[in-house]
Design a protein around this nucleic acid. Sequence first.
RNA 1: CGGGGCGUAGCGCAGCCUGGCUAGCGCGCUUGCCUUGGGAGCAAGAGGUCGGAGGUUCAAAUCCUCUCGCCCCGACCA
Length: 479
Amino acid sequence: MAEVKIAKRSEDYSRWYTDVIAAAELADYAPVKGCMVIRPNGYAIWEQMQRALDAMFKETGHQNAYFPMFIPESFLQKEAEHVEGFAPEVAVVTHAGGQKLEEPLIIRPTSETIIWHSYRNWIQSYRDLPLLINQWANVVRWEMRTRLFLRTTEFLWQEGHTAHATFEEAEEETVRMLGVYRRFAEEFMALPVIEGRKTEREKFAGAHHTYSIEAMMGDGKALQAGTSHHLAQNFAKAFDVMFQNQQGTREYVYATSWGLSTRMIGALIMAHGDDNGIVIPPRLATIQVVVVPIARKPEEREKVMEAVGRFTAPFKAAGIGYKIDDREQHSPGWKFNEWERRGIPLRIEVGPKDLEKNQVMLVRRDNREKIPVTQDGLTPAVIAMLDTIQKALFDRALEFREKHSYRVDDYAKFNEMLDAEGGGFLWSHWCESDACEERVKNDTKATIRCIPMSRESETGQCVVCGQPSPGRVIFARAY
RNA sequence: CGGGGCGUAGCGCAGCCUGGCUAGCGCGCUUGCCUUGGGAGCAAGAGGUCGGAGGUUCAAAUCCUCUCGCCCCGACCA
């Protein structure tokens, strides 16, 4: 492996981010602009995310299916707002089989259209509802500016597409899945997020309204980490999907869609990473514990390895993902650095000195603390330590977010905060006018991240124009 | 699409301005010895269409023209 230098996070955040990805061997740039190769270390994180989310989708009654990546161009055009939103970033296939195609095919930027084409055949009666489908897929969006994981031309995600009999049921589903995302972020990624509703300007093209979870990254910028859309009857009308209700009358179906992508890997890096690289929360780590044996002489080595075999024996049954790094060509110091770069949450060092004391050394990735632990009862100690790390990561991220959240009521101060702090969440009053939202964006590059669902009721005056405001919203610069 | 930067060994770079021995250096890689508690050491090796095409010249990594690609900053976005 090549020597890897990671820029200081505090000095060059952007450079630091790409360095961390290279250092942990998460992804490479691909020959095609904006595309990436997700390497085994990166894909392992995605697999853990899939596993956790997929289980939650199943628990909430969803089934997986798969729809094609090629969509007739005409499909996209059936929903006016949708086509307007996506047309500029759609890749189109015009030739295939050595011939020009009669109708060009688009490569899905999202699958609403082709899925609703199918739903038309699947749904006739209220008895067919709700229809709860999810798919794991790749999608392509030709973005102008790309960054590994955060915005790539092709990315992996899951997209849920559900159909319901009433607006209210669809709303319940939209909010339920937003909650699933929040739980996933908090419990698995150790990432505190804020649930909220998007403004008209920021909502999904084709949605009635959109919700998102918003997280704060290590530089104070916001990241939209998952979205859930209430599509109302927009796609049902575009694809003529009607059902007969219990009264025998036909009406259009109500829909939702929700998605979460490999962007979350970027969120993970930026939320928890430090100058030594990525820090993977224990609940998303395939390798949660790496064991580094230390020995000089062959006879020492034999004793150390014997102990390692003994104390790791219960790990598998206890559900601990672990790896023993017994390579002889690298020094312990070299290994410490390598596993830290890869973000393995916990390291166990064991050498002759430890054997004398019947102990091992636990070393936390998140704060590098070294804790001696006796070999007897090591398994529960490791499990407890992994929990501690998981919780510490969440607490630290939450504390950071709180520290960089401000209530701001004065527009001059508002501008000043964004310049001085470079980021952070500004909780300010907004009159709900598009004009004020746009002005903020032009003045500061900050956007309204969301109208928090849990905001306290507090009327006030718009931070921009002074008109009456029904409550505070979150302004921030975003990825 | 505008502004900036860069294409030379797997990775990071020097050489280019001022053309000239066999194109170098660090890391990594291979083999051997020796080592191992925070990126060890020694020795011997392997590895190159200098992004591509054309031109100038006795001679091009180096000068000229064209071209392809990537990265960073902005407008758009999960």
